[in-house]
Amino acid sequence: MKILLPVDGSAFTKKMLAYLTTHPELFGTGNTYTLLSVQQPLPPRARAAVGSEIAQGFYAEEGEKVTAPVLKFLGQHGMAVKVIHKVGSAADIIAKTATAGKFDLVVMGSHGHSALGNLVMGSVATRVLANCKTPVLLVR
Rank of each mutant, 00 (worst) to 15 (best):
residue 3 I to T: 11
residue 48 A to W: 02
residue 55 A to N: 06
residue 77 H to N: 14
residue 51 G to S: 10
residue 104 D to L: 12
residue 129 L to P: 03
residue 94 I to P: 02
residue 38 V to Q: 04
residue 38 V to K: 02
residue 48 A to Y: 04
residue 116 L to C: 03
residue 17 L to D: 03
residue 140 R to G: 08
residue 39 Q to F: 06
residue 13 T to V: 09
residue 68 A to N: 12
residue 72 K to W: 00
residue 133 K to Q: 14
residue 124 V to S: 06
residue 64 E to K: 15
residue 80 A to G: 08
residue 126 T to R: 11
residue 67 T to S: 11
residue 112 G to K: 11
residue 127 R to G: 01
residue 8 D to M: 07
residue 65 K to P: 02
residue 133 K to S: 14
residue 54 I to L: 14
residue 92 D to I: 09
residue 140 R to W: 00
residue 132 C to S: 12
residue 121 M to Q: 12
residue 42 L to E: 07
residue 105 L to T: 05
residue 14 K to A: 15
residue 102 K to E: 12
residue 112 G to S: 08
residue 118 N to Q: 15
residue 94 I to T: 04
residue 127 R to T: 07
residue 88 G to S: 05
residue 124 V to C: 07
residue 87 V to N: 02
residue 128 V to E: 01
residue 53 E to G: 02
residue 79 M to D: 02
residue 63 G to L: 05
residue 75 G to N: 03
residue 129 L to S: 05
residue 65 K to F: 01
residue 116 L to H: 06
residue 38 V to R: 07
residue 101 G to P: 04
residue 20 L to P: 03
residue 130 A to Q: 15
residue 133 K to F: 00
residue 61 E to A: 13
residue 8 D to R: 05
residue 43 P to R: 10
residue 103 F to P: 04
residue 74 L to A: 02
residue 91 A to Q: 07
residue 117 G to Q: 14
residue 43 P to G: 13
residue 124 V to Q: 12
residue 99 T to N: 08
residue 21 T to G: 07
residue 59 Y to T: 07
residue 81 V to Q: 04
residue 134 T to P: 06
residue 59 Y to F: 14
residue 26 L to R: 14
residue 82 K to R: 15
residue 26 L to H: 10
residue 77 H to Q: 14
residue 48 A to S: 13
residue 26 L to Q: 14
residue 82 K to Q: 15
residue 82 K to W: 00
residue 98 A to K: 03
residue 7 V to C: 05
residue 29 T to V: 15
residue 63 G to F: 06
residue 98 A to T: 05
residue 79 M to Y: 05
residue 80 A to S: 13
residue 64 E to F: 01
residue 128 V to H: 02
residue 104 D to V: 11
residue 22 T to D: 13
residue 81 V to G: 02
residue 4 L to P: 01
residue 33 Y to I: 09
residue 10 S to Y: 11
residue 34 T to E: 13
residue 77 H to C: 03
residue 30 G to Y: 05
residue 138 L to W: 11
residue 138 L to R: 11
residue 10 S to T: 14
residue 102 K to W: 01
residue 35 L to P: 06
residue 49 A to W: 04
residue 55 A to F: 02
residue 18 A to F: 13
residue 65 K to S: 09
residue 97 T to R: 03
residue 121 M to C: 11
residue 49 A to H: 02
residue 125 A to S: 15
residue 19 Y to A: 11
residue 19 Y to G: 12
residue 19 Y to P: 00
residue 139 V to R: 12
residue 66 V to D: 02
residue 87 V to D: 03
residue 106 V to C: 08
residue 113 H to Y: 14
residue 20 L to C: 08
residue 70 V to M: 03
residue 36 L to I: 09
residue 77 H to R: 13
residue 9 G to W: 10
residue 132 C to V: 07
residue 35 L to Q: 11
residue 131 N to T: 14
residue 136 V to Q: 09
residue 80 A to H: 11
residue 77 H to L: 03
residue 29 T to K: 15
residue 58 F to N: 12
residue 2 K to W: 06
residue 134 T to F: 02
residue 69 P to A: 10
residue 91 A to Y: 07
residue 120 V to T: 10
residue 6 P to K: 12
residue 14 K to E: 15
residue 19 Y to F: 15
residue 24 P to A: 11
residue 71 L to Q: 15
residue 100 A to P: 00
residue 70 V to C: 01
residue 59 Y to D: 08
residue 68 A to H: 11
residue 17 L to I: 14
residue 89 S to Y: 10
residue 98 A to L: 08
residue 62 E to G: 08
residue 43 P to I: 06
